[in-house]
């Protein structure tokens, strides 16, 4: 069984065209609901505005990312995720919804490097148009054989999330994509 008190990648790090590292334990709360009517409760609990299509908004100590027309993902401190899910459930009483702490079902990794190589390394493993991905937008896509999501914190730092069970696969995939000698110089 997985040990949920450590991150799936146990602090792994790889260096190459970009630096890839385990982003460590991260709180993630998924909320499925009618987003328009849940906006007030989300604002009250997280301090963040309801994100528009594919956007990420900033709240108090957390961020809210648009996942689908009826789903958002709240990224927060690992220790506060369970309370946040509970508070959302309270705030949405009487409204059809599901708020769940999924922190330990996911893995997050961070890539840092020069803007060009950073986008190249990601573009090699996904069909998503990485060149057209702006800051503050979450792109759910395919990372070779598995589902994942990518977004840019800054032009020199990207984040990738995937399911915990495929964390090692995605890490190895990114590490291989970032290996020295694999530069393509497209971006």
């Amino acid at each position: 069984m997985s040990d949920a008190t450590v991150s799936a990648l146990k602090g792994a790090e790889a260096r190459g065209l970009v630096t890839l590292r385990d982003a460590g334990l991260t709180g993630m709360v998924t909320l499925r609901a009618d987003l328009a009517t849940a906006a007030r409760a989300v604002k009250r609990v997280t301090g963040a505005d309801m994100p528009g299509l594919r956007r990420i908004t900033q709240g108090q100590g957390c961020r809210v990312a648009w996942m689908s027309p009826d789903e958002i993902l709240i990224l927060c401190e690992h220790a506060t995720a369970r309370k946040l899910a509970f508070d959302l459930t309270e705030a949405l009483t009487g409204q059809h919804h599901l708020a769940l702490d999924v922190s330990d079902a996911r893995a997050m990794m961070a890539l840092t490097g020069e803007p060009g190589p950073l986008r190249d390394v990601l573009a090699k493993i996904t069909p998503a148009d990485i060149a057209a991905l702006p800051l503050g937008e979450m792109r759910r896509t395919r990372l070779q054989q598995v589902a994942g999501a990518i977004w840019f914190e800054t032009e020199t730092e990207a984040r990738v999330i995937c399911f915990r069970s495929v964390a090692t696969y995605v890490f190895d995939l990114l590490a291989m994509s970032a290996r020295e000698g694999g530069a393509i110089g497209y971006h």
Partner: peptide, 11 residues
Amino acid sequence: PCCGIDACETE
């Protein structure tokens, strides 16, 4: 039409 992404067939 749900998320506005130009999705490749493999997605």
